[in-house]
Design a protein around this nucleic acid. Structure first.
Lengths: 239, 239
DNA sequence: CCCTCAAACCTGTATGACAGGCTGTTATTG
DNA sequence: CAATAACAGCCTGTCATACAGGTTTGAGGG
């Protein structure tokens, strides 16, 4: 068996890629669920007939993508869905200037127009309350930009969660890092307190529409919110 | 300096995470672009004052996320934007049943309603031709499901590319793996050749609307296409 | 039956070694 | 002098070994 895998290996990819595939295949073929343990490194080493170095690099790679969880002394376990890898990819695209903040905002707008509608239709009472709470905390701390930002991010992530589609949550959360980098600019561009409070009012309107279960109104407010945000960024010279 | 980094390290995260951060920080602080070389493992080893084992696992992790490219003999280089990591995350979510195919399709629909509109507005002549070509190849090979599928995937990716927003391309491409897994089911569900050809006609209509630069019509056809595809999957019992 | 604790297992990191790929430089040859 | 071939040096890929420290488990004692 070991030899079979060895002879079947493609020319270039290297042993580590093979090991990664073996592990993911194991997860699938065994039907593992989040929290379930994977084979130990030693077991994998024997099974694949490669050194522990190779196996470790494979495990570590999957851990970096947050497909598995590793911690000292314990065996690796299958991980819950996590946005870690996606965030890294987006961040990488931004820092290497392969994608622009503006492009990210266009995607966010597209997605959040949908999440907000779904949230209005599917939200539980608790979710509606959490969304409204984030908006409320934005207002209460409006003189402290950093805190407002964190509640803003929580607000959008809460809406995505209320859409009851984890894929939306995944993507929205992956963009939060970009928001953290650009938020201050957008905030300062709203020069007056009045503008800033108006922006917070926009969030409250969205929360309200979701609470009332009115998707059309929610989408309308969300669109307005994004249009203003993008305009603020453009005014500040962010491409 | 080395000691400074050592004393500043957080308690648990481990040296590898620190090394990963150091590398990404290096990319950012040096303003590296895709193709630019990174420091050698030996250099990183000295700079961070850790073993080569740790540095290698860090490099390998970034390589797994496709943030850098590695190959024997050469130093690692900054990678072009790639969908590898995202695909893995989505696949992982599906195989561990944390997300459903239906949920992925809802996200795809949301995104592609936008990409198709942008494509109609922004496509170059070459892009419009490529999109139409994929549709044409679907028809020409309609008796061979696998080939039709590949052209179907290429069709949707071409539209995303024509949106001129790489983030959309990234996401759409990340979903292609899911499509490969479910496509056959949707195809077989369209029991008659007539249904299958109708579905291909839908693609041609989309391509046509894009060629004519009519976003409204393009969106309309895309919506119809997705609604039918989702219905086919539902009929087949895919949650 | 419960508590304690040590042995067994597991991961995290370090070190040294060697094979093989890549590159630039040098020496050879026409 | 120019083209080319050989080489040396650097780099990554893989392996073997060792040890520190965390986790689990079960045996033994109370």
């Amino acid at each position: 068996m070991a030899e079979l895998a060895e002879t079947m290996a493609e020319p270039s990819p290297g042993l580590v890629s093979t090991a990664i595939q073996a592990i993911t295949r194991h997860i699938r073929s065994e039907g593992l669920a989040p929290g379930d343990p994977l084979p130990s490194e030693a077991a994998m080493t024997r099974q694949l007939n490669v050194s522990r170095t190779v196996v470790r690099e494979a495990f570590r790679s999957l851990s970096a993508m947050r497909l598995i969880d590793m911690s000292a002394g314990r065996r690796a376990t299958v991980a819950k869905l996590d946005t870690g890898a996606m965030s890294m990819v987006i961040e990488h695209g931004i820092t290497t200037q392969q994608i622009s903040v503006h492009q990210v905002y266009d995607v966010r707008r597209t997605i959040e127009m949908r999440t907000v509608a779904l949230a209005a239709l599917r939200r539980t009472e608790a979710e509606a309350a959490a969304i409204a709470q984030s908006a409320k905390l934005m207002r209460e701390n409006f003189q402290n930009p950093e805190i407002v930002m964190e509640h803003d991010i929580a607000f959008h992530e809460a809406i995505a969660a209320a859409s009851h589609n984890p894929v939306f949550s995944l993507i929205v959360t992956a963009f939060s890092g970009v928001t953290r980098r650009t938020w201050e600019i957008g905030w300062r561009t709203r020069s007056s307190n009045e503008d800033q409070l108006k922006m917070i009012k926009g969030h409250e309107d969205i929360a309200d529409a979701i609470l009332r279960g009115d998707p059309r109104l929610a989408v309308e407010h969300m669109a307005e919110h994004f249009d203003k945000s993008v305009k603020a960024l453009l005014d500040a010279g962010i491409a």
